[in-house]
Design a protein around this nucleic acid. Sequence first.
DNA 1: CTGTTAGCGCTTTCAA
DNA 2: TTGAAAGCGCTAACAG
Lengths: 330, 330
Amino acid sequence: MVGIDEVARRAGVSTATVSRALSGRGPVSPVTRQRVQTAADELGYVVSAAASALATGRARAIGVIVPFLDRWFYSTVLAGISDGLVRRGFDITLYGVSAAAEERQRVFSDNVRRRRVDGIITIAPELDADEAASLRGLGVPIVAIAGPNPLLTTLTVDDLAVGRLATRHLLDLGHRRIAHIGSPEVTGSSVPALRRRGFAEQMDAAGARPLFADADFTIEGASTAARHLLDSTERPTAIFAASDEMAIGAILAAREAGLHVPDDISIIGVDGNELGRWFGLTTVDQFARCQGERAAEAVLAELDGAAPALRRGTLPFALLERGSTATAPG
Amino acid sequence: MVGIDEVARRAGVSTATVSRALSGRGPVSPVTRQRVQTAADELGYVVSAAASALATGRARAIGVIVPFLDRWFYSTVLAGISDGLVRRGFDITLYGVSAAAEERQRVFSDNVRRRRVDGIITIAPELDADEAASLRGLGVPIVAIAGPNPLLTTLTVDDLAVGRLATRHLLDLGHRRIAHIGSPEVTGSSVPALRRRGFAEQMDAAGARPLFADADFTIEGASTAARHLLDSTERPTAIFAASDEMAIGAILAAREAGLHVPDDISIIGVDGNELGRWFGLTTVDQFARCQGERAAEAVLAELDGAAPALRRGTLPFALLERGSTATAPG
DNA sequence: CTGTTAGCGCTTTCAA
DNA sequence: TTGAAAGCGCTAACAG
């Protein structure tokens, strides 16, 4: 591996000058800079991350903490983060923490603390107090996304408003008998609870009686839940599922029951999951990929000296009509 | 941030001893080790990745190159890699290279070359010759998975055999009129081409005439392709799709056409995509997550001094029957 | 078994 | 604008 002194020798300057020329920090005459650049290119020189990090105290890397790498939402956000960081020449150090408690513990007490990163983005891994404290103790910018985390400042979607928006859409189409498939959780500020409350509030405001069915955020779970709803004597004319996967489960259940979507029943989800496209699913898109990009921008901004407050913010969402909702029958 | 000398002072030993005690390398008396450990714990000391890397030449990190973070196969393999590496205390440095040519170029010419990693795992990002050479020039172990890459030694599934297995399964069920939905590519050693050839070979061997429909590996594309097949006068009694997503597309098309799966038509896919579960899809599972774990083991083994040959290997696959295939009708 | 002492490869004052 | 030199925080010989 070619080092900085080799470049210096070839360019006929000192290593200090090479460093200045290549990093862009400090004064270097244009002609010298050019000579150095040429020498570096010819030699294929690239600075050693370790040496540079040790000398400057900055690693040019951001740590990303993700609970489930193989779930749509997380991997999509991660893709956005990656885009946002690569653009600025930062590397990503990935910390998967789905694992067992002890492994998880190790990630927070060791891996994350090796000072390998200049900042951290964490995607809703339900950190406990110790873990959050451990992160804050790092003394680097931290941005949390997805799910208002009381322990950290957060970039988050207003899921109460999301729930209301989806519900209003159905109400506006004339539906009155609307069911929500989601979490049983009524209180608290978890994402599912907020979406549920948004639904309940909007229904109340419209003077309509809300129906509820609980499911576990999987296609299958929602499918079962939907089947019950469809079999009931008081069959809803519309379903608002708290995730696209669940909405798809509902669509599958409806089809199996011989119902036509959206003529017989309207179904709306939340997420903007690609999968919904193939089912013509109307949804409240939360632009997961953008969330990642925003998070990346936020950490980098703070590294550049922006006020920490900047990392607190709300993320956009929007109704995406694809045909699984229509005017209420009858 | 507390440093090694602070720990040394507190434990009443030299920094060298602290280093030895904490890293486990070199002789240290049990009692001293304990004292050091205690001091480190009390102080919350963790070695600096940069300093350690600079001094040892090892970063305790593996670079992972992934083309699409938000596609099922890649994110699932990544999850497996993460599991495999975390267990051994290695960090992952993630390089997403889906981006435009110039960004991609930068990843290979700069990011990857900062010597931040001790080894590299690359997931089938169709590297060109320059990129592969750039990786090899790093002088660290490289393991490629998914798709036989002629430029690198590879851990790969025998997709020819996969194609044969899926086809044989259908033939064994008595089907003769079987269609393959997949790539138009007949020659070459890409994954789709191999699966197709496996199908063709097996059909030939059985003296059955193969039918083909091309699709782009999306649900929608396959759905369209399947519709054509189902409308044709020579409707197949079984479909072998080259991916689970396409198989799902075929299932959806069949349902829309009023056909019952598997009574009217059998459908089999390849991948082991979770999604298939909800459709009762029979498939050839390629255990994506295990592929990641295997790759992780392979790089680490080579770091531990195992022969590079070890990284060449074949990955398992197996028929997973879930009900979308049945005896041929009639 | 432990301490002393050079570095690892770069960056950054400080002087020139 | 440039160079010399002192570290950044840790590890690994080498002595003891």
